[in-house]
């Protein structure tokens, strides 16, 4: 069961692949689709494994991806992620 997810701003991505390579649970893969500048942005290949750790967001040099945690079952928001 996924504990989090990622939000990708496709148009900012330059397809470097850092997020795909360094995702600890190997959730992401580069898509075959192009963005407006001709780069392949990542997508969630295996969304159930995502823990929302945001390591992809830490690695992204173009601020194009952000990992977040889902609120806990108790209804309390996940730590520091709800705005």
């Amino acid at each position: 069961m996924a504990r989090g997810s990622v939000a990708v701003t496709t148009e900012r991505c330059k397809g470097c692949g850092f997020c795909v390579e360094f995702c600890p649970t190997k959730v992401l893969a580069l898509s075959s689709a192009f963005n407006a500048k001709g780069y392949h942005a990542p997508y969630m290949e295996d969304p159930d494994k995502c823990s929302g750790c945001n390591l992809c967001g830490m690695y992204c040099p173009d601020f194009a991806i952000y990992g977040y945690r889902f609120p806990k079952e108790t209804g309390e928001p996940a730590e520091g992620k709800q705005q």
Partner: peptide, 8 residues
């Protein structure tokens, strides 16, 4: 450039 680490 794509692959540059400054943004990281």
């Amino acid at each position: 450039c794509p692959g540059c680490g400054i943004g990281t």
